[in-house]
């Protein structure tokens, strides 16, 4: 009797466990099977996954910012909002311009009034530096770094953000649940929650433009050529030339994100 009871118990336990696993896992197993059959989107960011069919261009894009040229006109910020329907509210930006002012003591003051969308020329914006012995001052424009190793893609619980073969991080707006984990994970403050769509948004390097052979809007309107875009593999491109002829740095290299936005003349104070 005891033996049968024990064997029943064992059987019951097996059945219970089996039922629990099968039941609880049913729907997501289905999901897994789908992911294996349908789109290799989970694997999109893994280098080993061959995803040739959705890579019409064999490009790997890069962006160069020449901080020695930027004049802080803010045309790039305004153009980005225009081109990509980014909310006008200065708290939501796919790109922005920062100004660094360094005084005699080496203290750095940083500002970005309205994300730089109206430039930096207006009087109140400059008056705060009147009593400061300025040693040097310069502008740095910022945008999504389209990291090779993107923390935002890593943390997205539903895989709504992904990296394309040509190296651009995009957000699937029909899938994002708006948990904002990616916003926390981005070390560069490049992401925000779109207040209208309630999904994460970020710079796409104007994916609709670059895939038509055009420059991103910010590059298009920059009057001084401080922003460059292209494929470094093409030796005649502006970015290839800039990367060849200059000492280059990236933002926060210590985090291992491997940004694809490269900076010329980056000061140590820029973070």
């Amino acid at each position: 009797m005891g033996i049968t009871r024990r064997s029943f118990l064992r059987r019951a336990a097996v059945v219970l466990a089996g039922v629990a696993a099968a039941g609880a896992g049913w729907s997501y197993l289905k999901g897994l099977a789908q992911s294996a059959n349908e789109a290799p989107d989970q694997a999109a960011s893994l280098p080993s996954a061959p995803v040739q069919q959705r890579t019409p261009q064999p490009h790997h894009w890069a962006f160069v910012v020449d901080t020695t040229k930027c004049i802080g006109c803010g045309k790039c910020v305004a153009a980005c909002k225009e081109e990509n329907n980014v909310p006008e509210d200065p708290h939501f930006n796919r790109t922005w311009v920062e100004r660094y002012v360094i005084d005699e003591q080496g203290e750095a003051y940083v500002d970005s009034p309205d994300a730089g969308v109206h430039g930096f020329e207006s009087w109140p914006v400059n008056s705060k530096y009147q009593n400061i012995q300025v040693v040097k001052s310069f502008f740095v424009s910022k945008l999504c770094n389209q990291c090779e190793n993107p923390p935002c893609v890593q943390v997205c619980p539903v895989g709504a953000t992904y990296k394309t073969e040509d190296g651009v991080i995009l957000v699937n707006r029909s899938r994002c649940i708006g948990c904002r984990y990616c916003i926390q994970a981005c070390p560069y403050g490049a992401r925000f929650l779109d207040p209208n769509l309630r999904v994460a948004d970020k710079c796409t390097w104007c994916y609709h433009r670059i895939s038509k052979g055009m420059d991103p809007a910010c590059v298009e309107v920059c009057p001084v050529g401080a922003r460059m875009f292209g494929d470094p593999a093409d030796p005649d491109s502006a970015v290839a030339k800039a990367l060849r002829e200059n000492r280059i740095s990236v933002l926060k290299p210590n985090l291992g994100t491997r940004p694809q936005v490269f900076y010329i003349g980056l000061d140590q104070e820029v973070r």
Binding site: Q34, A160, N172
Partner: peptide, 21 residues
């Protein structure tokens, strides 16, 4: 379902260009 990435990429590509060049 699983986000159809190629489809989403096409959606991003298809967006309207504003700055004509």
């Amino acid at each position: 379902g699983h986000a159809n990435v190629p489809q989403d990429i096409e959606a991003w590509k298809a967006r309207q260009v504003q700055y004509a060049g």
